[in-house]
Amino acid sequence: MTPRGAPPPSSGSEVLVAEDLRKSYGPRQALQGLSFSLRAGRILGFLGPNGAGKTTAIRILTTILKPSSGRFVVAGVSSDQPEMVRRMIGVLPESLGFPKEIRAIDYLTFFGQLYGRTAAEARTKGLALLEDVGLADRAKSPIRTYSRGMRQRLGIARSLVNDPVVVFLDEPTLGLDPRGQRELLELVRRVARRAGVVLCTHSLSEVEGVCDDVVILSSGRVVAKGSVAEVIGIAQGSNNGRRVIRIHVAGGSAEEVRRVLGTVPSVIGVTRLGEATGWVGVEMVDQDGAGPSVDQESTNEVLDALIHAGISILSFESEGGNLQDAFLQLTEGSIA
């Protein structure tokens, strides 16, 4: 799906390029040099704690705000042509409201016409989109009869009426139940087959589940960007060779685990995580800086030592090995 009259972007081509975007509100710098690119068919997770500059960034990229400096390009159209940019993008704002008395199909037809379609074209497009988002059977229902999940799906349909090259989805799953969240994320994946998607969310599991790339903002700065694996790697690499694995042991006390692991050279500390949970944190250090493969070996060494000491391991996880840990580490001190 591309703007009217334009061929589809070739898969993998850059559809959104931001270059050193900055925004100041008086003396306060809300955004300090945002640069990234998005390729067609990929989903970019836009993360950051409250006040990190996400909303400012999204509003700049959707032409609602003007940057203090820097620029961006959407499918070859520069940000100094905001009306042209608006033709190329679709947006689901965080707090999107709907006129309650209007029927869903009329709502989509109205927006389709605002993008220059004739009434018949806009209606046909609207019906197709309602089919795509699973609302075809409710096309003629007033929007006031829609549930929150249905409204979100209708909002996504609205963001696609102009066949955008880039779609911005701001907290699309906010307020939805788990089933609604799962269905909506599936819809986001389908949208990404047609366009590049920027997904702005606080749910890190969502990002891990659907996003190809991530940009993490903190205090207006980009603290990490790249694929999800790369960002997790960045966080792990910033630990100065220290890392922690969490182990859930059955019946074993922290004292016993500490005694057993006292002989393992890479272990520098063992702490109990909670009183009666059976979880212990094992802090290790990469002794020769040899990197991830040695990390894995030392983890095996720790687990091996516990098993040989007769301590049953129920489960274990590596701290910093998922996006949530990476996020908390990279944005430490700036959580609002």
Partner: peptide
Amino acid sequence: SVDVPRVR
């Protein structure tokens, strides 16, 4: 850097 022509 992109190859999509401008919208009509």
